[in-house]
Write a protein that binds this DNA or RNA. Structure first.
Lengths: 210, 210
DNA sequence: AAAGTTTTGTTGCTTTTGCAACAGAAAATC
DNA sequence: GATTTTCTGTTGCAAAAGCAACAAAACTTT
């Protein structure tokens, strides 16, 4: 997906880099960061996967976003004016580059190699983010659980160039991601199987239409 | 919202600018552009407002995004691999800067003033986009029509720093935007009025809680 | 390998949402 | 300023989604 961005280059540059950047490791279920206004933190996920979750006043948990390798996150991307808490939670062991910036233009006084590369790659990294958000919006605007599921499956199928693919998260999390009730989603999956739209073996899905 | 980006500066630079940029006007309901892979078009809305809409195979129309002054759009932001048609439709008379780029890094051979400024402002413009998309996702992940409405009203209230504000689009379009059935939304609005959560006079809403 | 925990699969019942249809209000067009 | 079109407000009914609860399977942890 990221043609010219290479996280390995990034890391190499990082080694002898500026003091504004830290590399940290997190265990599963640890909180990587929380979105707080003026904290000015910008993160790149080097390995593992993590979720951006919101806990609302009633304690309901919503997966707002799901991050994998190369994804960028931090409160720059967010209008942190809601009352709700936004946390990034590690779903597996994660390595993260955490960068504290003074201003949104990401200019480093020392003009170190890391920052040069960051400045170069940033538009691209952010564009990837916009693309994935747009896709997410497109899924979420679908009206029925069935359409959301099929939309998502199509997407995975297009990405993997195959009618058979593995879901990148648990069915419980998929329901959260598509913003539907889990049992309703399971019911719909069952119907899709019965109506021969899909074949399902655990988290492996095969599309049977067209 | 855009502190350092100023569309007027942009336009001034544009006047004696490069041949890759065009300024065009569109009447209400005209199609400004459609998202086609490899078209490599990037647009900035100078005035008016427009919607990004999807027509699916059944002819259902969904408002994927709503653009106002300073908003950027184009298929760069989109993974144009779906079968569905994506169109940007003018909702009022619109002026648009249309920029054809060769590569995603937006470098202009002549290095004209327009491009210099574009390169400077692009991260900021795109970040605004990410912020608004994240907000949209947050609204769409809310499970009930009521929560979507209240979430959206809170947002408008926070933006205008007032408990009273005017909806920026018609109720019909609002339903499309929140991805709910219009009549269900009207019903919910009625209940919110009856339960004294809100006061409503046409498109002017007043929040009565907290 | 046993115990504990999380995920999956299922179902009856309730609530919410969506659909269809219509009338009046408002806006746009002629 | 009359006519057509779009938008708003409403409702009965049908369909879909959500809730609650439980058992079985899969996975962690001890």
């Amino acid at each position: 997906m990221n043609l010219s961005f290479d996280i390995e280059d990034f890391l190499r540059d990082f080694e002898n880099s500026c003091n504004k950047v830290q590399k940290k490791s997190f265990e599963k279920n640890q909180v990587i960061t929380s979105y707080i206004q003026k904290r000015n933190q910008f993160c790149i996920l080097i390995s593992g996967n993590a979720d951006l979750v919101r806990y609302d006043l009633n304690g309901n948990r919503t997966i707002i976003d799901h991050f994998t390798k190369n994804d960028v996150f931090g409160e720059v991307f967010y209008d942190v004016t809601t009352n709700n808490e936004l946390l990034v939670e590690a779903k597996s062991t994660c390595e993260v580059l955490i960068y504290s910036y003074q201003n949104i233009h990401y200019k480093c006084k020392q003009n170190c190699k890391f920052h040069q590369r960051l400045t170069e790659c940033l538009p691209e990294l952010i564009l990837d983010k916009v693309t994935s958000l747009n896709m997410r919006v497109e899924l979420l605007t679908k009206r029925s659980t069935r359409d959301k599921l099929l939309g998502y499956f199509n997407l995975l199928s297009t990405r993997t160039l195959s009618k058979t693919f593995k879901l990148p998260f648990s069915l419980t999390d998929l329901a959260d991601y598509l913003s539907v009730d889990r049992s309703a989603m399971m019911r719909e999956l069952k119907l899709l199987k019965e109506e021969n739209f899909i074949k399902k073996d655990g988290k492996t899905i095969t599309l049977l239409y067209k």
